[in-house]
Amino acid sequence: MNRRSFVAQLVGGAGAMAAGARMALAQQPDAKPAVHDSMAMMRSNLFAMDQSAARTVVLPPKRDAKPSMTPDDRNALEHQIRCQCGCTLDVYTCRTTDFSCQVSPAMHRDVMGLVEGGYSAQEILNAFVGTYGEKVLMSPKRSGFNLVGWFAPGITMLVGAVLIARVIVRWRQRTVNQVEERPVRAPQHQPSSIDATAEELARVAAAVRSEDDRA
């Protein structure tokens, strides 16, 4: 097998993942893409991907538009947008590790266009949500019912902390009451229900003695 046929096979392999694209590639063995394959392709064995899932997110440029952010900020923004091919990765990660995915580059182009058009990060996210729905965001918006999602762990932790505090206060109160109501008894008079060996009781007795001595 020569290099060209290998490359063609890679194209074929990539096409196998995209149900719609497969037939087209079989009919056009020399067709683009020029670069091939990658990780999400393999993952797509496990989870079928949809290479036709990309839609267009375009807005007219703002007046006197200048790029609204640096490339680093744009990359950070792409980390918040989920690739729609089914890989479960964000656009930036997918497009930089999976050159066979046709969805994340298309979404990247849309982000680039909106950045060039002067749109802010929030406006770009809103545009994507308008086209794809909320599922395009890597994490839910902090509004409406999603607030339940965001705050439930924190509220649960708070409730847990309050419960623990109450239990501790109750236990402490009970201990104080026990000490007040009942003088300390020597270990040899411990009720028989106590589950301790003679050796343990002896150790406890020694500890009690030393405490008493200190007192």
Binding site: H79, Q80, R82, T88, D90, G133, E134, K135, V136, L137, M138, S139, P140, F145, N146, G149, W150, A152, P153, T156
Partner: peptide, 28 residues
């Protein structure tokens, strides 16, 4: 553990309650 379980299930809960698909990914 609860936060992880909740985050994993919240897309399903959201779809049941609102009928809207959402993603709960690494940022959450």
């Amino acid at each position: 553990a609860f936060a992880i379980l909740w985050g994993t299930l919240f897309p399903v809960i959201s779809e049941w309650v609102r009928g809207t698909k959402i993603t709960v990914g690494p940022p959450f």
